[in-house]
């Protein structure tokens, strides 16, 4: 503790004379960002909360405050079902991206000793992003369809006699699609944290007699947790707000909160859309807050 205190002393003292000019410049530098966030983040969120209390009739919406939209949302099986589906799909996709992403990150960040090669492999992970999001989602259709690539191959080699129908236009296809699209957001942060582990720390653990799994459990996993948390935040925020993948790959069978919002906005039901939006925002905030509880990112990064 004393060490921290002494190292803090010097910069404070040396910075003192220049603090007089500091405030105006700080304000100047902050202004664009603050303005932007106020206009495009804070104001819309406040507006959304406000609109969720407006009175909605079939053809128009009036700024008369009412709880009607909220009551409708929480007493309707459709909306609550969508909320539940959103949470379920989010948890499954989070688990599957971690399951696929962690070993990949372990390989790229730790087992590949050559830094150039590991950077090249990370770039390879990003290559799918050269095509648009929608194309990547839609590309799963010819893969998973009844007469798609996977069914055709499996039938050719005689594993199945009937095409597997559950592959496309089901919850499974949505999960497959999302896992593929968001996996890289899990791989990146984890590989970064793993790459920062000093190889001699692992050698030291080896020298002290620990087996690979022990070293993984006691050294590698705890040291990569900040990466896992950052990756999980990326994936969570994106999956919770998803609507395009489920629309394209579920044949409208899977309705997420995102899909509800799109439909409601499409039919000009602004109040309902706002309610769903507020619920979704609160959910995301809770998820991010919970994830940040897992690891003290400020300390670890």
């Amino acid at each position: 503790m004393t060490m921290v205190a002494t190292s803090d002393d010097t910069p404070v003292e040396t910075a003192a004379p220049s603090t007089r000019r500091q405030p105006d410049r700080t304000a100047l530098l902050l202004a664009p960002g603050v303005l932007w966030m106020l206009l495009f983040l804070v104001a819309p969120i406040l507006m959304m909360v406000y609109v969720s209390f407006w009175t909605q009739t079939t053809f128009k919406i009036e700024p008369t405050l009412t709880l009607k939209s909220w009551v409708t949302f929480f007493s309707s099986d459709t909306y609550l079902g969508a909320l539940w589906t959103t949470i379920r799909i989010w948890l499954i996709v989070l688990a599957s991206t971690l399951l696929v992403g962690y070993p990949a990150a372990l390989f790229v960040g730790l087992f590949v000793k050559n830094k150039t090669l590991s950077t090249a492999l990370l770039v390879l992970c990003v290559i799918p992003f050269w095509t648009s999001f929608l194309i990547r989602v839609l590309a799963w259709r010819p893969m998973l369809g009844k007469e798609g690539a996977i069914n055709m191959i499996l039938m050719k080699i005689g594993v199945i006699t009937q095409p597997i129908e559950v592959l496309l236009f089901s919850e499974l296809s949505v999960i497959i699609g999302m896992t593929q699209i968001y996996c890289v957001f899990m791989v990146g942060p984890i590989a970064f944290m793993l790459g920062r582990i000093d190889p001699s720390v692992i050698e030291a653990a080896q020298d002290l007699g620990a087996s690979f799994w022990r070293i993984f459990r006691t050294i590698i996993l705890p040291l990569s947790m900040p990466g896992v948390v950052v990756g999980a935040i990326f994936v969570s925020v994106m999956v919770l707000g998803e609507f395009a993948t489920s629309a394209a790959l579920s044949g409208r069978k899977v309705n997420l909160l995102g899909n509800i919002i799109v439909t409601q906005v499409g039919s000009l039901k602004w109040a309902f859309a706002a309610v769903a939006g507020v619920v979704l925002t609160v959910l995301m905030g809770a998820v991010v807050a919970a994830l940040l509880r897992v690891v003290d990112l400020k300390k670890e990064l």
Partner: peptide, 21 residues
């Protein structure tokens, strides 16, 4: 090459607790 996430005592105990043999 100390284990950065462990305390002084935990670092020292590592070999005793985690060796395979």
């Amino acid at each position: 090459a100390l284990f950065p996430h462990l305390s002084v005592a935990e670092n020292i105990a590592f070999g005793l607790e985690n060796r395979a043999v």
